[in-house]
Amino acid sequence: MTSPFSTSTEPAETGPILTVRGELDVATAPRLRTGIGDLVLAAGQLLVVDLAGVTFCDSSGISALIAARNAAEAAEASIALVAVPARLTRTFALTGLSDFFPTYATAEEAIRQRQGGR
C-alpha cells in the first residue's frame, strides 16, 4: 500500500517548517520542488524539513531535498532535516550526504540549536 504524498507548511520564529508525508519519489519529487519554490525565505532564517511521515524516498526525493538546501542557501538561509527515517539516514551515510544536511530528532531541537541552545 502506498502512502499519499502531501506537504504542509507552518511558520516558526526562525522560519518555515515544511512537513513532508508519504512516498517521496520520481512521481512526487516535483511537487516537493514546487512547494519549496513557493516558500518565502529571508536571510538568516532556518528552513526545517520534517521527514517523520516519509515512508519511502528514492534518488528523485533526495534530489528534491538537495534542491531545498540550494534554495535555502540562495536565500542566505539554512536548512535542517528533522525526524529523518532510519533508511534515509542510512542512505545519507552511504552517499556522503550525512554531512551535507544537518539533522535533528525534532523541529524543536533544530530551532533550539539555531537559537543558540536557549
Score class of each variant (00 low, 15 high):
Leu47His: 00
Ala83His: 07
Glu108Met: 05
Arg21Ser: 14
Tyr104Met: 08
Glu109Tyr: 07
Thr95Gln: 10
Ser98Arg: 08
Gly53Gln: 09
Asp38Glu: 15
Met1Trp: 09
Pro102Ile: 08
Gly116Ile: 02
Gly96Cys: 05
Ser59Asp: 03
Thr2Asp: 11
Ser6Thr: 13
Thr103Tyr: 06
Ser60Leu: 04
Leu88Trp: 07
Pro30Ile: 13
Ala93Asp: 15
Gln115Phe: 08
Asn70Phe: 07
Ser78Tyr: 06
Pro4Leu: 05
Val82Lys: 07
Met1Leu: 13
Val49Glu: 09
Arg118Asn: 02
Val49Gly: 07
Gly117Asn: 09
Ala80Glu: 10
Ala80Lys: 01
Ala83Gln: 10
Pro85Ile: 05
Thr89Ala: 14
Thr14Tyr: 05
Ser98His: 14
Thr34His: 03
Leu88Met: 14
Pro4Asp: 14
Ala12Phe: 06
Leu65Glu: 12
Gln115Asn: 11
Val26Asn: 07
Leu46Asp: 05
Ala93Cys: 07
Ala12Val: 03
Ala43Gln: 13
Ala12Trp: 05
Val84Tyr: 10
Phe92Lys: 01
Leu47Gln: 08
Gly15Asn: 11
Thr34Asn: 08
Gly15Cys: 08
Ala71Leu: 04
Phe100Val: 06
Asp38Arg: 06
Val20His: 03
Ala64Lys: 00
Gly37Lys: 09
Gln115Arg: 12
Ile111Val: 15
Arg33Tyr: 09
Val54His: 03
Pro102Asn: 09
Leu51Asp: 06
Ala42Cys: 11
Ala72Gln: 12
Val84Asp: 13
Phe101His: 03
Gly117Arg: 01
Ser3Gln: 11
Cys57Glu: 05
Val20Thr: 02
Phe100Glu: 10
Leu94Asp: 07
Glu10Tyr: 07
Cys57His: 02
Thr95Val: 11
Ala29Glu: 06
Ile62Lys: 05
Ser8Asp: 15
Ala110Phe: 01
Ser78Phe: 00
Pro85Gln: 03
Ala64Asn: 10
Ala105Gly: 04
Gly15Glu: 13
Gly53Ala: 08
Thr19Tyr: 09
Arg118Trp: 02
Arg33Ala: 15
Glu109Asp: 15
Glu73Phe: 00
Gly15Trp: 13
Thr14Ala: 14
Gly53Met: 10
Ala64Phe: 01
Val84Asn: 12
Thr2His: 14
Pro102Cys: 13
Thr106Glu: 14
